[in-house]
């Protein structure tokens, strides 16, 4: 078990980071059951991620990387174990409460972007803010434009996803992930659908967000990208091997 630290440190770029655990998993199990088959996707995962840390999760296909990320992001419910996000024990939370934690604490970046093609770039970025109380339309628009500016897409705000390149779509997805200013950014193979140059650009954006204090957990197949993170967690057959 990992104990929870409370001290603060200063990172290499000078940003203040807390050493408190932003994410803490204890004895996580995830088993998929059908009538005849029981598949163990995750087994006894114990993981602590400090605030401001940038870690990567690696492992072969089917090793449980994405499942682990989904459990961390409260997108999937573990069969056993405890999940804490920003020191909140969320395992027992109901649908509404989980939705609020996802909205306020976590941003997601997916391999296939998952942008809504019927909405413009800026409308896509506004989505997380729609579920946050007390924001006017003008405020939402202002925050969305600021997020797009941060990922260098201020000139494409009224385009639709289908009018953008893969790299640009992933930038939109990142803008959507950070628009609500979450403490945690979860990225599931964010460079998986991009060529190496665009992949590097996206990694640059993520690194910049980490430098600004975001805690990032990234699933990747690419050793070159994982080397850019502070720590690598390796999975094999649903077990944590390092």
């Amino acid at each position: 078990m990992t104990s929870q630290a409370t001290a603060s440190t200063t990172s290499a770029n000078g940003a203040q980071t807390s050493t408190a655990n932003m994410i803490q998993l204890e004895g996580i199990e995830k088993v998929y059951r059908t009538d005849r088959i029981e598949t163990v996707a995750l087994s006894d995962i114990n993981l602590s991620v400090r605030a401001g840390e940038f870690i990567s999760i690696m492992g072969p296909s089917g090793s449980g990387k994405s499942t682990l990320l989904n459990v961390i992001g409260l997108l999937d419910v573990p069969t056993g174990g405890k999940v804490s996000v920003n020191s909140k024990p969320v395992t027992s939370y109901g649908d509404k409460h989980l939705a609020r934690v996802r909205n306020e604490e976590i941003g997601f970046v997916f391999q296939t972007f998952h942008l809504i093609n019927d909405l413009s770039v800026v409308d896509n970025v506004e989505i997380p803010l729609l579920y946050r109380k007390g924001l006017s339309g003008a405020e939402r628009r202002k925050l969305a434009l600021r997020a797009l500016d941060r990922v260098g897409l201020h000139a494409r705000v009224h385009h639709f996803p289908s009018q953008l390149s893969g790299g640009q779509q992933q930038r939109v997805a990142i803008a959507r992930a950070i628009v609500g200013n979450p403490r945690i950014l979860l990225a599931d193979e964010p460079t998986g659908n991009l060529d190496s140059q665009m992949g590097d650009e996206i990694m640059g954006v993520l690194k910049g967000l980490n430098d600004d204090g975001a805690t990032i957990v990234m699933v990747t197949h690419d050793p070159r990208q994982s080397e850019k993170t502070e720590r690598i967690v390796r999975l094999f057959d649903g077990r944590q091997v390092s």
Binding site: D95, K96, N103, L115, I127
Partner: peptide, 11 residues
């Protein structure tokens, strides 16, 4: 899925 991931509740 996207809307739930970014904070939409079932209701």
């Amino acid at each position: 899925g996207v809307r739930k991931a970014f904070g939409a509740s079932s209701w």
